[in-house]
Nucleic acid binder design. Structure first.
Lengths: 190, 190
DNA sequence: CGCGACGTTGATTTGCCTCAACGATTGTGG
DNA sequence: CCACAATCGTTGAGGCAAATCAACGTCGCG
């Protein structure tokens, strides 16, 4: 069996055919329409989502009602509210598709069950979480040291294709500023 | 054997006496003087640090030479540069003690070795990393939605004792603003 | 075709920074 | 244990990056 998810996992741990089947059996593929929600504020997050195709985001609602994007996930990335997932407490985020997407729903209960039968999956998720946390430490660094304009240039350099794939107001909210200011920055650049 | 580290681990996984000994055998206690460094920029991070007593911080040097604190760790917290640790690449951070501290040095090589002999340690570190990443997601949320003054009030409410334990310039840099501005905020509050 | 969502532009405002100078406190060597 | 330096904290004047607000183009979709 070769799926994007299995391929991703096998970059970090070994699985035999039988284990692959057990692992996949507990998941399900879901087609998600543009702007459809996988989680809403107040709900308890029940699954980790692996993006096979398309793009998801996690956002929250600011004081004045604006949607503030916290993270994006594209092909071969995971996305979830990991605090809500771990403690099974109500989430303060929304998870929504940015474009029509194909997602693997990986229930947390399944992850917990696998931890006994296929212990190396814990290793996979440990590495995943450590990568994510490491990236988050770097993001904190950038948030503290770069100006808003530099944030945009930096993001543009790192993900040149992605910049044109999402609405500008989402990109602006992800970078931590207003759509108007992004417009101003873009005007400057020839 | 009961040490703060073992107690912490046993909140999440089971260990028998023999396993505890193997686990501790690969670690070492280190007394760290105030302002002493455990890691400097450019070095590859080799260990995860567990704070038994005292306080550490991880910071980086900004464009104008200022020290920007990214995280603090107090009793029973872990601290490290997890990106550098995972990929064994040069760090862009410094790890330094804020006060005289007692630290358990947990080499990453030891963590890797344990993952074979005592597989449930992977589970412990997975939960640790997931908690840390979840907290990081919340921190992103606060950074995006609160003003600098609200950040301070929020932090003060959450860690009232800690506020008076560290120099104000470190707190200011952690909250993402200048010592002068923190001074101004404090003046307002009666 | 028309409406609503998205993007742009410019005028004005503001939260926070910068710089400089001055107190307060801490630590250290004589 | 004191003196004095270094570090840390405060205050105020002035400046700038980015927000706010409002108005107007434009595009995609039902």
């Amino acid at each position: 069996m070769s799926t994007p998810l299995i391929n991703h996992i096998k970059q970090f741990i070994d699985l035999d055919e039988h284990e692959e089947q057990i692992l996949l059996a507990g998941t399900q593929r879901q087609s998600v329409k543009k702007k459809e929600y996988l989680l809403k504020e107040g709900q308890v997050c029940k699954a980790n989502y692996f993006v096979e195709k398309g793009c998801l985001r996690i956002f929250f609602i600011g004081e004045k009602g604006e949607e503030q994007t916290a993270y994006f996930a594209i092909e071969n990335w995971w996305i979830s509210d990991y605090a809500s997932l771990l403690s099974q407490s109500p989430s303060s985020f929304y998870i929504q598709s940015v474009e029509a997407s194909e997602v693997i729903v990986f229930p947390y209960a399944h992850q917990e069950a696998l931890s006994k039968g296929i212990p190396q999956t814990e290793r996979y998720f440990r590495i995943l979480m450590q990568k994510a946390y490491g990236a988050s430490q770097m993001r904190i660094k950038y948030l503290y040291s770069l100006s808003r304009e530099e944030m945009y240039r930096h993001f543009q350099r790192q993900y040149p294709d992605f910049v044109n794939r999402i609405p500008q107001y989402m990109l602006a909210s992800f970078l931590g500023f207003t759509p108007e200011y992004l417009s101003e920055i873009r005007k400057k650049k020839i």
